[in-house]
Simulated scan of single mutants.
Amino acid sequence: MNLTDDCAVGKTELVARDSLEMRNDSVSGVAVSQSILGRILSYGTIEVRGEEADGVRFGYIKKPEELRNTMQKYLADVADEAQ
């Protein structure tokens, strides 16, 4: 998962590929899902939701709450700079 001044970009691939490129101003939310085992082992799934598009899920993310908090802070900072 990469964040730039313009967009959020994420890719996952093993056999199949999922990718997301969404302008920062169209990201409406970032959600975390974790099972009990995921909470113990500190991994989970991140879902990036867009205003006009369905969310895209990225699984097996280490420290997903930390990533979500970093993304939310970054997106808030970018929105503040735009105003």
Rank of each mutant, 00 (worst) to 15 (best):
A79Q: 11
C7W: 12
L67E: 09
D80W: 10
A8S: 06
A8P: 07
A79G: 08
Q83I: 12
G29L: 03
C7V: 13
A8F: 09
S19T: 14
L67T: 15
K63A: 02
A53K: 05
M71K: 09
E47G: 00
E21M: 10
T45W: 00
A76H: 13
V78G: 03
V27Y: 00
V27A: 00
Q83M: 13
G59D: 13
F58S: 06
L14E: 09
M22F: 00
T70D: 05
T12N: 09
Q34D: 02
G55T: 05
K11E: 07
T12P: 03
R23E: 06
E13D: 08
E52F: 00
L14D: 10
Q34N: 04
T45S: 03
R39H: 00
C7E: 14
L37F: 02
Y74K: 09
A16M: 14
Y74F: 13
E13M: 10
D54C: 02
F58A: 12
R57W: 01
T4Y: 06
K63G: 01
E65A: 01
M22C: 04
S28C: 08
D77S: 10
N24L: 13
G29W: 05
E13G: 15
A79W: 01
V32P: 05
V30M: 04
Q83K: 15
D80Q: 14
R49H: 07
V30T: 08
R57C: 10
E13Y: 09
E81M: 14
L41S: 06
N24K: 12
L3K: 08
G59I: 08
S33E: 08
D80C: 10
V15M: 14
Y74Q: 04
E52N: 06
V15P: 07
G50R: 00
I40V: 06
F58L: 11
E52A: 07
T45Q: 04
R39F: 00
E47D: 04
S26I: 11
G10S: 15
Q72F: 11
M71G: 06
L41Q: 10
S35M: 04
A79T: 14
Q83D: 15
M71W: 06
L20H: 05
E21Q: 08
A8E: 07
I40L: 05
G44M: 04
A16E: 13
L67N: 11
E51I: 03
N2T: 15
A16R: 15
V30F: 04
A8K: 06
E51F: 01
K11Q: 07
R17D: 03
Y60K: 12
D77T: 15
V9H: 07
E47P: 01
Y43P: 05
G44N: 03
V48I: 13
E13L: 07
K73T: 12
G59A: 13
Q72I: 15
L14T: 10
S26G: 01
